[in-house]
Design a protein around this nucleic acid. Structure first.
Length: 514
RNA sequence: GGGUUGGUAGCUCAGUCGGUAGAGCAGCGGCCUUUUAAGCCGUUGGUCCGGGGUUCGAGUCCCCGCCAACCCA
């Protein structure tokens, strides 16, 4: 990114020329009276307006010229005549570059071809752009630039910007929905001495002053349950979680998760909550319950119908339906063989329930396009849930599946501290240090019966917005860091076996305590 | 981790059999006072991802590496 080229040199020369004329190419302030969109919607012939934005097109007619000005609201055309703005200002406009920010004072009028425009009286350069923008109408295609320099993607591809605005609305609508149901939003630690609430590899870091390791959280569950103990009866957190695992179309190392807990609820309470919430979000943000997913050519490849109620099916019934009605009558060895025949990945050390789960993930989940609540999962899969009284080999759990992936698990939360300890110890497989004793102590103080749910917000956005890659719903997806320009090919790697950064004085920041 | 495809001008892309590096847009200069992918004339611009090899000669063929997308694990 340190490279330079003729285009940049030209722009820097223009910058120097402006300064030589006594003009400040980077103004501190310009106060628009209207946004670009407002100037158009509030149109009155002859109305004085001040607008500001980025120059996105430049049509020079000789002694007059047209500019397109774009701000966050939209676009408006500027018309400038040499004999109106004067020679100096006209010269400035003539040599503007695409990407520069400009403030314009003038009056509204309609051109011969019917476009609402601002007839410029006064023009002020607000910020000079030293690098050229991506192509005008091709958009920006290069995925690497799109992800690494998202701002260019947002400038060049309006549909990308629209998508991220929708993501923002989705998250806002979720918050509003939960608040309307009496939920309290909280923030709990990202740095945790013991990562819990899920089975995933954590990121590790080091606290210098305390001289100990911390992990970035892999789930929100355990702190939120402590709050149930503390009397927050309806509580949620919407925040970033981190998993130190592979990066793929469906996985980013940091992702946004929602977890919500409701005292005196159970998994069926959460089923109603999740269904109502997603229906409400789709209706509010998209105005429809029919989600049409299109391929890059624009053809509809998949339609998801969110009309409630969503069907429920028991895990075992679903497995029998897809993997053979005799599936649970087989011996573990026979199950293993059949799973391999189906092409599921079976590790040599897989336990029997994991074999079934591999079949579920490989064979069944990808086919679940329409929303469905898969209930009563094997108890081994979810040690934080309560057993089902009807079938104690299963737990009171549902997985909401749609769009071929798991979107939201929820369950009746385990609140028996002794039972909970046994289940966690069994899962930890003897690694006692992984047990969150502090959480168990909290449970021993008494946790009300409760329902809880978790939801991957990125996956929800993919489903609602019809995106096939998680990178297209995360503004700055994780990529391998670029090699330093002109330097050695590889970025600096930490010493083998050490994930912690060496002790180093923190730079003083001036904003923090101002 | 494995496979496939790709990386050429600021952007979008061509580049034939191995023989002087191309287009459109953007840029620069000129003309034009209602254009809107403005138009017309002229014109600049290249670490062909990096390194090595084969060859008289490599964007092109071979090897190694980097980055990305997709598929698989």
């Amino acid at each position: 990114m340190d490279e330079t080229n003729a285009l940049i040199e030209q722009r820097k020369a223009k910058l120097a020329a402006l300064r030589a004329r006594g003009l400040d190419p980077f103004r501190n302030k310009f106060s628009p009276s209207h946004t670009c969109a407002e100037a158009r919607t509030h149109y009155v012939e002859g109305l004085s307006v001040a607008v500001a934005g980025r120059v996105t097109a430049h049509r020079d007619m000789g002694k007059s010229l047209f500019l397109d000005l774009r701000d966050g609201s939209g676009r408006i055309q500027i018309y400038a005549q040499k004999n109106v703005v004067g020679d100096d200002a006209y010269d400035l406009l003539k040599h503007l570059d695409l990407g520069d920010f400009l403030g314009v004072r003038g009056t509204l009028f309609t051109t011969r071809t019917g476009e609402i425009s601002v007839k410029a009286m006064e023009c002020v350069l607000l910020a000079k752009a030293l690098r050229p923008p991506p192509a005008k109408w091709h958009g920006l295609e290069d995925t690497e630039i799109r992800y690494r320099q998202r701002y260019l993607d947002l400038i060049a591809n309006p549909e990308v910007k629209d998508l991220f605005l929708k993501r923002s609305q989705i998250i806002r609508t979720i918050r509003d929905f939960l608040h309307s149901r009496g939920y309290v939003e909280v923030e709990t630690p990202i740095l945790q001495p013991i990562p819990g609430g899920a089975a995933a590899r954590p990121f590790k870091t080091w606290h210098n002053a305390l001289g100990c390791e911390f992990y970035l959280r892999i789930a929100l569950e355990l702190p939120l349950k402590r709050l149930l103990v503390g009397g927050f009866d309806r509580v949620f957190e919407l925040g970033r979680t981190f998993r130190n695992e592979g990066i793929s179309r469906r996985h980013n190392p940091e992702f946004t998760m929602l977890e919500a807990y409701q005292a005196y609820g159970d998994y069926e309470t959460m089923m109603e909550l999740v269904q109502s919430m997603i229906v409400h979000v789709a209706q509010t943000v998209l105005g429809t319950l029919r989600l049409e997913h299109r391929n890059p050519e624009g053809r509809v490849v998949r339609t998801i119908d969110l009309t409630p109620p969503w069907p429920r099916v028991r895990y075992k019934d679903l497995v029998r339906e897809r993997a053979g009605s005799d599936w649970f009558d087989l011996t573990p060895q026979q199950r293993r063989e059949r799973a391999l025949q189906w092409g599921a990945e079976i590790g040599p050390d897989y336990e029997d329930f994991e074999v079934t789960q591999a079949v579920f993930e490989k064979l069944i989940e990808p086919t679940l396009i329409q929303p469905v609540f898969v209930t009563h999962l094997p108890k081994e899969l979810i040690p934080l849930a309560k057993l089902s009284p009807e079938d104690p080999s299963t737990v009171e759990v549902f997985e909401l599946c749609m769009n071929g992936q798991e979107l939201a698990p929820a369950y009746t939360e385990q609140n028996d501290p002794i039972e909970q300890r046994e289940r966690l110890e069994h899962q930890a497989g003897g690694e006692r240090q992984k047990l969150d004793e502090d959480f168990l102590v909290a449970l021993e103080h008494g946790m009300p019966p409760a329902g809880g749910m978790g939801m991957g917000i990125d996956r929800l956005c993919m489903t609602l917005l019809g995106q096939e890659s998680i990178r297209d719903v995360i503004l700055f997806p994780q990529l391998r860091p670029r090699a330093p320009a002109g330097g050695s090919a590889r970025p600096a790697t930490p010493a083998p076996g050490s994930q912690s950064t060496p002790e180093r004085p923190q730079p003083e920041t001036s904003r923090e305590d101002g």
